[in-house]
């Protein structure tokens, strides 16, 4: 089937056959998560997991609702600021800090979504980009963000007052837990009746509306949820790196998360994580060479759009189905 859309249509009726494979992959993934901190640099793996969750949250919107948000950095970075500030200045529990950051992202998502969903397609993308730029300037000016310096030296503290997060493995455990909770929530939403309605909106909004679904409410709900999960990822990243800066709210970050989804496979559950892994690795590699990584990311964008629009996981899934 020649599809010109941004997402791969679900292959109904084949789920049963693929289930053992999925279970196998899931098990392999869990084993890899358990082994990773001993094989790789743990902070790198934690960064990767945060971005994987961020990209998955973004993908929920693009892949399952068909909305391209160019402003997701606002939620990622905004939550990072809130968590960093609440943990460092107010001295609250790091887990509560993450929850607060997530909540803040959801609130921002509600405000931004309420305005942005009034336009569709290309205008939606431009509107979210403009609104996130506004949020960027607000954070640049806000008294608690320290402008260019950001919030530095955020203490990781003790989770629930007990677990010392300055121990790398403890922090790693928390990040894995956050990642799994986030991914499970996304998976649960996609496979719920609510998720089915979202897909119906993506496929044919007019028809879904004529069937009595209030498109705007469903879209706003998905937007807020996606923003919250993006915030969860950003809040966790703030604790991992103990810093929240303008980089996380800048539009470049919104572009990166789009590329992660696109590269891995829009509309696939695992794709964004694969894409995030690749991009984070590439960024780490080029950070040492002095060659601007943006050129590489730009070329990847061009390559993805022109040559493989289904992304890595999408292409693999297509091959497996043949």
């Amino acid at each position: 089937m020649q599809s010109t859309d941004l997402y791969i249509r679900p292959d109904l009726g084949q789920g049963a056959r693929r289930l053992p494979l999925q279970a196998l992959l899931l098990a392999a993934g869990l084993v890899a998560l358990a082994a990773a901190p001993f094989l790789l640099y743990p902070v790198f793996v934690m960064k990767l997991l945060c971005f994987a969750l961020f990209a998955s949250a973004f993908n929920l919107l693009l892949g399952y609702v068909g909305l391209l948000s160019f402003g997701h950095a606002a939620f990622f970075g905004g939550a990072a600021y809130v968590t960093a500030h609440s943990v460092k200045v107010w001295g609250i529990d790091p887990v509560a800090g993450i929850a607060l950051g997530t909540l803040a992202a959801a609130v921002m998502g509600a405000a931004m979504g309420a305005i942005a969903i009034r336009r569709q397609g290309i205008y939606f993308a431009m509107t979210t980009l403009a609104l996130s730029q506004m949020i960027y300037f607000l954070f640049l000016r806000a008294p608690f963000t320290n402008a260019e310096d950001g919030i530095q030296n955020v203490p990781r503290g003790h989770a629930f007052g007990l677990i010392d997060l300055s121990q790398t493995l403890n922090m790693y455990g928390l990040v894995v837990a956050v990642f799994l909770v986030g991914m499970f929530a996304i998976w649960r939403v996609i496979n719920s009746p609510y998720g089915q309605v979202l897909k119906a909106l993506r496929e044919n909004e007019t028809r879904a509306v004529s069937l009595g679904y209030r498109a705007d409410r469903y879209k706003l709900g998905a937007f807020v949820f996606s923003a919250a999960i993006a915030g969860l990822a950003g809040a966790t990243k703030a604790l991992v790196f103990q810093i929240a800066t303008l980089t996380d709210v800048a539009w470049q970050m919104s572009g990166e998360v789009i590329l992660m989804s696109l590269l891995g496979g829009v509309g696939t559950l695992a794709g964004p994580s694969v894409g995030a892994g690749l991009i984070v690795t590439i960024q780490n590699y080029f950070a040492t060479t002095g060659f601007p990584v943006n050129v590489v990311l730009g070329l990847l964008f061009i390559l993805c759009v022109l040559c493989f629009r289904s992304g890595i996981v999408g292409e693999l899934a297509k091959r497996a189905r043949r």
Binding site: L6, L68, G121, I122, A125, G255, I258, L262, N294, V295, L297, G298, L299, L300, F301, I302, C304, V305, L306, R309
Partner: peptide, 14 residues
């Protein structure tokens, strides 16, 4: 049309 946006975004980055 979103592909055009993403393609030209890539070009801009380059």
């Amino acid at each position: 049309p979103l592909y055009g946006l993403l393609l030209t975004f890539g070009v801009a980055l380059v």
